[in-house]
Design a protein around this nucleic acid. Structure first.
Lengths: 239, 239
DNA sequence: TGCTAAGTGGAGACCCTTGTCCACTTAGTC
DNA sequence: GACTAAGTGGACAAGGGTCTCCACTTAGCA
């Protein structure tokens, strides 16, 4: 599926577009989401204007680049639901998603970040979350997943994994696998130690957090997204 | 201990310096390390020049601000070593350190980040790491900590916690506590499931990683501070 | 009180981003 | 081959960061 954004393009333009996406995918994977647009353009052998003509904002480019990875995520969860053993499905789904995050520095950030423009993708993600909740239910019913596991703990796990991937440079894969192994070990039903309450924040909540320090696409000076006034008045027109 | 950087200062200057540190501490805690120097100056009621006169770089300010928190970290581990029950010591040390990270958005980043200038602090941190390794040994000897736990897993845990804290905004404390509970549950000796190998990266390694995406102090567009040429030629004058 | 070195604030240099504009080039059709 | 709409690249605007410079103010001492 060579992207529907490329229909009706002149042959050379289409080639350029494809190269841009390809280069961006590689750069995002290697260096995270904050590689500058100019670097992408240069690597693709085009000017910035060309890049911006195809993708009016950086967000649009990121969205396009990760669209199929998002899709892959959804089908990972779907596959997990199809597994007759819900616990095995649960574990492999988590392992695969975290593996994808570890293999691509940009993807983890993109997954956790907000894409206000990309409604399509948001819906995908929400569907995946729904499916995961169902998977959770089944794994609990099978008596393999501890009863006090909250579906919101998926957010916890993803953020933790994101931190590990971001911090461990070359060793991201190994580090991520180990973290996941530890956590899955703790998710099993036999684990009876009581837990503190789950954080009252699903992935959805995290997304619109004004202080999402995991660096979404929008950089410092972006739009005034509706604040949920956590802190004190603070007054001074800061930052 | 009102900081040795303040000796011989005129009374008013000293007052300003103290206010700067105090304000910076609060802002870093609330909003992370990337609050601009100008904002700190404004909140402290001084001009940027004054700020830069006392702290020649942002790094210097961060170092000063977190010096005593680093110290507190070290004594947390010392306390843990003093506990007759090494497993309890191990758990409370981890809980306290992660709690400190969760309570202060800047601290986690600072802890994981590199401070090439702050030799003093690096030494502190290294000492804490040594002490933690000893704690690990004892907890294993007591048969409470799983044998395949690697001291490097502390780095894993801290990075994971850092990710959670960064991503969960207001709920950082709750989220962090839950993550830690999960992980400690998995660290116990009764947990027999085999683990994938540990990431071959201690905190030390992470520190000098050229791609430390956990956002150390130095930002992208900073000044021409003498770079420590860590990385390869890299070719294209990128980024 | 008056002197002076220490301290100060604000303008601005400099760099890095994202995104726009416009004169030029070129693919594709007749 | 010539025409034209589509496509292009590089300069540049706008805005955000760190850090510097320098004319002015002021604490502290005699």
């Amino acid at each position: 599926m060579p992207a529907e954004g490329a229909v009706g393009l002149r042959a050379d333009a289409r080639q350029n577009r494809d190269r841009i996406v390809e280069v961006a995918r590689r750069l995002f994977a290697d260096r995270g989401l904050d590689v500058p647009m100019a670097a992408i353009a240069r690597h693709a052998g085009v000017g910035v204007a060309t890049l911006y003509r195809r993708f009016p904002t950086k967000e649009a480019l990121v969205t396009e680049v990760f669209a199929d990875q998002f899709e892959a995520c959804v089908s990972v969860v779907d596959d997990a639901l199809a597994d007759p053993d819900p616990w095995r499905g649960f574990c492999t789904a988590i392992e695969k998603i975290c593996g994808m995050q570890a293999a691509d520095r940009g993807f983890g950030t993109a997954f956790v970040a907000a894409f206000p423009e990309a409604v399509e993708i948001e819906r995908e993600r929400d569907r995946a979350i729904q499916a995961f909740a169902e998977l959770t239910r089944r794994a609990k019913a099978a008596g393999r997943l501890r009863a006090d596991f909250s579906p919101d703990d998926l957010a916890l796990l993803l953020m933790a994994n994101c931190g590990v991937v971001a911090g461990s440079a070359g060793e991201a894969g190994v580090a991520s696998r180990r973290l996941v192994a530890y956590l899955l070990g703790s998710f099993r039903a036999e684990q009876a130690d009581p837990l503190p309450p789950p954080a009252r924040l699903s992935l959805h909540d995290v997304l619109d957090s004004p202080t999402s320090a995991t660096r979404p696409v929008r950089r410092a000076g972006a739009g005034p997204t509706a604040h949920q006034g956590t802190t004190a008045p603070q007054g001074t027109g800061d930052r």
